[in-house]
């Protein structure tokens, strides 16, 4: 009889401790979440980051923006151009009527109504409040539906193992990636331009202007007011964050 009551009270004590432990761990994880939420500076809908590309300043033989982007994000040539990542590419055009030639960089257009975000089954493709379209590397299952859906061919599927990755741009075989608008620079809040714009300015072309489309006093907004800028495939009504002049 004695041993039975002992074992009951021991079980009770054990359950009480287990309950306390559970409550403590729930409280601590809640606190951690709260702390992390309060310290992280999230993207804000106050801004909408975008690019304005002046094709008149973009030179046909120049690929400084492509090289700059590749260096920044650790995108190495694999020797297989068809399967390597292409965050940004150069296109040379000729007008069918006038014969006028122009050149431009093409990258993720950071659409407000992004088809890649719509079609992604797991929500790995997402748009931040500040308009930057990204891929969550932890939930991308590599279905490539977003690559199919992107009207700009701006997304790349990673076909092989990647070595020498940079911490600012984690990448992974079997997932999809695209231009991040150098989101690490945006989040660092140091006023740095994206790598493509920086490389373009370094080569004295200044064809790529980065800025806040929501701020009427920003240089990009003022330029957009002055020049006739277009959206590529404006017929799709995607409200792109990247605009072009001189096309």
């Amino acid at each position: 009889m004695q041993s039975t009551s002992n074992s009951v009270s021991a079980r009770r004590r054990f359950l009480q401790k287990l309950g306390l432990l559970g409550a403590a761990s729930a409280l601590s994880s809640y606190t951690l979440i709260e702390v992390s939420a309060s310290t992280a500076q999230g993207a804000s809908a106050v801004n909408r980051w975008g690019l304005l590309i002046d094709t008149a300043k973009c030179s046909a033989g120049c690929d400084a923006c492509v090289t700059g982007c590749n260096e920044e994000h650790g995108i190495d040539a694999t020797g297989r151009d068809d399967t390597r990542a292409q965050w940004i590419r150069k296109i040379d055009l000729q007008d069918n009527l006038t014969g006028r030639e122009s050149s431009l960089p093409m990258m993720c257009q950071h659409c407000a109504s992004a088809p890649c975000v719509d079609v992604c089954p797991t929500g790995a493709s997402f748009k931040r409040d500040d308009g930057v379209v990204l891929v969550n590397k932890h939930t991308c299952i590599g279905c490539r539906y977003c690559v199919m859906a992107c009207p700009y061919k701006a997304r790349s599927f990673i076909h092989e193992t990647i070595s020498n990755q940079k911490s600012i741009a984690p990448r992974g075989k079997g997932t999809v990636e695209s231009c991040t608008l150098c989101v690490h620079r945006i989040d660092a809040n140091t006023g740095q331009q994206p790598a493509c714009a920086e490389a373009c300015s370094k080569d004295a072309h200044d064809a790529i202007l980065f800025g806040d489309l929501n701020n009427p006093d920003s240089e990009i907004s003022r330029s957009l007011k002055q020049h006739k800028a277009i959206e590529v495939r404006s017929d799709l009504g995607l409200n792109t964050g990247v605009r072009y002049t001189g096309l």
Partner: peptide, 20 residues
Amino acid sequence: LGRPDRLIVAVTHFNFRSVF
């Protein structure tokens, strides 16, 4: 899939705008 090992993600994370 590029990441067939993430099948569990496909059946636990849903984006109802996606036909997939």
